[in-house]
Amino acid sequence: MDKININSNEIGTMWTQYIQNSLYVQILKYFLETVDDEQTKNLVQNSINLSDQIVKDLTKLFKDDNIPIPKGFNGQDVNLNADKLFLDPFMVQFLEHTLKAGMLAHGSTLMTCVRKDIRDLFTNTTKESIKLYNQCIDLALEKGLLVRPPSVQVQPEVEFVKSQKYMSLFSNRPLNTVELTHLFENIKTNTVGIMITMSSAQTTDNQVVKEYMLRGMKISEKHVKTFRKIIEKSYIDVPMGSNSYITNSTEKVFSDKLIMHFMAVLSAAGQGNYATASTASMRSDITLTYQRLSAEIAMYAKDGANIMIDNGWLEEPPQVPNRKQLIKD
């Protein structure tokens, strides 16, 4: 069967995957240069191999279909000789976070593709991401680094909602386990966000970027406190991971372009997480909290995009022809 033409979904998702994986390669290569633990080093190397292969496969597809290859990120965006900035436990937490995002991204990409060679590519990357994620969780458990969800008691029998008060804005009922899951996971992701913004603010020499990262750190800290407060009102202890896996190094590691783009990726993921949590939560006060915090992230992301535009750091996705302009010309 002849190869069918590439479609808009495939171009857009391939472009996104290229940009993000070229970014991850630079971060992971720095991890590889500074990691001490041998098991963590192996996990980092395997993660580099996956992201690097994705970039190579996508490059070939772009060339074969005469689509401009994105600039993305390269060795100029990282200082591999910089002093150690992240302790090894952070690398494990970082990989847990990014591999979760990778499983979702690759699976979503697969669902938007039609052409068999592209579907085969993302079927394989989804499988490899799942394999790496399981290795990451096993390593975190072995080393006592995994922040485990709260252990709770539940009712002994199946029950049905008896009143609309269950979903009321003023409900004082305890959390259900679905609501608790999302609150806990969003605490974990924001804790990683605190360390990323802290380390970025600590090492950049650009004052605008520094202030933006400090603002992001304060937002993540506020969101963690908000979610903790909701959980604690149900008399549940909140397991907390450490946010002190950053050294005192102030040597620049990543380009400002890279860290600003990475914050855009994290902000988009955060909004997606909050949207999912909002629809899954049956207490209206929790739903409104997610919507309010999501709006805050959206404004933060918009300001970040403006900084990238002002500095020429924001690469455009492939665009369809501007027919109005063509007719006018």
Rank of each mutant, 00 (worst) to 15 (best):
I6P: 04
I6Y: 01
N9G: 12
T13Q: 09
M14V: 09
W15G: 09
N21I: 08
I27A: 04
I27L: 07
L28I: 10
L28V: 06
L28D: 04
K29A: 05
L32Q: 12
L32V: 13
T34L: 12
D36L: 12
Q39K: 10
T40W: 02
T40N: 07
N42T: 10
N42D: 11
N49V: 15
N49M: 15
L50C: 07
L50N: 11
S51V: 08
S51G: 14
D57I: 06
D57R: 04
P68D: 15
I69Q: 09
K71M: 09
G75S: 12
D77H: 02
D83G: 10
L85S: 01
F86T: 02
D88P: 02
F90C: 02
M91P: 00
M91G: 02
F94L: 02
E96G: 05
A101V: 12
G102T: 11
G102Y: 12
M103H: 05
A105V: 13
S108M: 15
T109L: 13
T112E: 08
C113R: 03
R115A: 10
K116T: 11
D117V: 12
I118M: 15
T125H: 06
T125M: 10
K131Y: 15
K131L: 15
Y133K: 03
C136G: 02
I137R: 00
L139Y: 03
L139V: 00
L141M: 12
K143C: 07
G144F: 12
R148W: 01
P149A: 13
S151P: 04
E157R: 07
E157N: 06
E157V: 11
F160E: 14
V161H: 11
S163W: 02
Q164W: 15
Q164C: 15
Y166I: 14
M167I: 08
M167C: 07
N176V: 07
T177I: 08
V178F: 12
E185G: 06
N186W: 02
N186P: 01
I187C: 00
T189F: 06
I194Y: 04
S199Q: 00
T203Y: 05
K210Y: 13
E211P: 03
Y212V: 06
M213R: 03
R215S: 07
M217H: 11
K218S: 04
K218R: 08
K218V: 04
I219T: 00
I219H: 03
K222I: 01
K222G: 01
H223D: 03
V224S: 00
V224E: 00
K225Q: 03
T226W: 00
T226F: 00
K229M: 01
S234H: 01
S255G: 03
S255W: 00
V265F: 15
L266D: 01
S267M: 06
G272T: 11
G272H: 14
N273A: 12
Y274C: 10
Y274G: 09
A277V: 14
S278W: 13
S281R: 10
M282C: 14
M282I: 13
R283P: 13
R283K: 07
S284C: 13
D285A: 11
D285V: 08
I286S: 08
Q291N: 09
L293P: 01
L293S: 02
S294W: 07
A295F: 04
A295Y: 01
E296Q: 04
A298Y: 06
I307D: 00
I307H: 03
M308R: 11
M308I: 07
W313F: 15
E315N: 04
P318H: 04
V320S: 11
N322T: 10
Q325L: 13
L326F: 10
